[in-house]
């Protein structure tokens, strides 16, 4: 084992360790810096009365998952198969599962 290799491994760990610590510092800084942006979004949600994130826009029941009912994923009849990828990924909202069929 040469000294150079040992030094290379030590440097690798020091660099990675520093990056790891910097990750937390960067995250804390970003969280502080994001406060005004979050406030803008929160204000928009408040003034427009929005209820959902616009993450899945492919079908109406995936666009507003919190506003759906248990019938909607089946669209017009119970044997109508789910064909949107996000419809298969998104679980029904807990308040529907807890209450049973709504």
């Amino acid at each position: 084992m040469s000294e150079a290799r040992f030094r290379a491994v030590v440097v690798f760990f020091i660099v990675n360790g520093l990056l790891f610590i910097m990750m937390f510092i960067h995250a804390a800084y970003q969280r502080n810096a994001a406060r005004p942006r979050l406030a803008v979004k929160m204000e928009m949600v408040r003034t427009l009365g929005l209820t959902d994130l616009s993450l899945f826009t492919e079908a109406r029941y995936t666009r507003h998952p919190s506003m759906t009912d248990l019938n909607t994923p089946f669209q017009d009849y119970p044997m109508s198969l789910e064909h949107f990828p996000s419809g298969a990924l998104v679980l029904p909202p807990p308040h529907l599962v807890d209450r049973g069929l709504d």
Binding site: L53, P65, A88, L89, L91, H95
Partner: peptide, 26 residues
């Protein structure tokens, strides 16, 4: 009528990105 409370809206997104949900589980 059917009321949907804010707490239920918030819990929806907990469920969507819960580890049991499709996206994370996949």
């Amino acid at each position: 009528t059917r009321p949907i409370t804010r707490n239920e809206i918030l819990r929806t997104y907990d469920a969507v990105f819960n580890w049991r949900a499709g996206i994370a589980l996949l």
